[in-house]
């Protein structure tokens, strides 16, 4: 059982009214569960946003934070590769007028291959973990591997080699290979988190999960909660 479970549950509790967990809170949940997330802040004002971006170093990513917007990309609520203060200001002002605006999540750009990790509570089989090739084509290529949680290291090994594109993770054509150790650690921590939240969640998407030779970072987080009876 996760030691940080009480803290995680209190974050979940405060999100219950929305039916899902806002990205900043979801990332705190992931951190508590031992997953790496990008350095980020939630800026209420433009000054805060710029301050963070300058300290972290451009380029940065900005995302709108609003309990009314589950699918941020669909409303133009995600901008990656913001190069300077001027662009960040424009993005901030555009987000500010969006429905239910609470702030702007500003975070570092993370390098790596784009994967997706996910979880769903299946009616017949309980918690299931998914690993797949990420990106916008995820539901077109459907290159994914599924296993019942909790995962052991050998399960993760099987999931990685079970992907059609697994050669891309092994350093295809001179590219850097993805760290199998980091990816395995990440999925096992994720699996423990899912087991701990089995009764509270419907599904979780970590899309994208950026993996390189040194890091595996959960760059987006969507936790859909189970509806209370």
């Amino acid at each position: 059982m996760l030691e940080s479970r009480p803290e995680i549950l209190s974050l979940i509790e405060t999100s219950q009214e929305y039916g899902w967990v806002l990205e900043p809170d979801a990332k705190r949940v992931f951190s508590l569960a031992g997953l790496e997330v990008p350095r980020f802040t939630v800026a209420k004002t433009l000054d805060e946003a710029i301050l963070f971006a300058q300290a972290t170093g451009y380029p940065v990513v900005a995302k709108v934070v609003s309990p009314r917007i589950v699918h941020k990309s669909d409303v133009g609520g995600v901008v990656a590769g913001i190069p300077d203060d001027k662009h960040l200001s424009e993005v901030f002002r555009r987000f500010q007028v969006m429905d239910g605006f609470l702030g702007v999540l500003v975070e570092e750009m993370v390098p790596g291959i784009e994967l997706i990790a996910g979880a769903k509570i299946d009616l017949q089989f309980g918690p299931m973990i998914l690993l797949g090739m990420g990106g916008t084509g995820v539901e077109i290529y459907r290159d994914v591997c599924l296993k019942m949680a909790p995962l052991a290291a050998r399960d993760v090994e099987g999931m990685i080699t079970g992907l059609k594109a697994h050669k891309l993770l092994e350093g295809y054509r001179g590219a850097e290979p993805v760290s199998k150790e980091k990816l395995t650690e990440t999925l096992i921590s994720f699996s423990s988190l899912v087991m701990a939240l089995e009764d509270r969640i419907e599904s979780i998407d970590i899309n994208p999960l950026f993996c390189s030779s040194s890091r595996c970072v959960a760059a987006d987080a969507r936790i859909m909660l189970k509806k209370r009876a």
């Binding site: 996910g118 089989f125 998914l130 539901e139 591997c145 399960d155 979780i204 859909m224």
Partner: peptide, 21 residues
């Protein structure tokens, strides 16, 4: 509501759980 729920449909989960064991 999520990619995972869409990619891990009932049958996909069924089939994966079987082969895992």
């Amino acid at each position: 509501s999520s990619h995972t729920a869409s990619l891990a449909g009932d049958y996909a989960s069924f089939s994966a759980a079987l082969s895992q064991y």
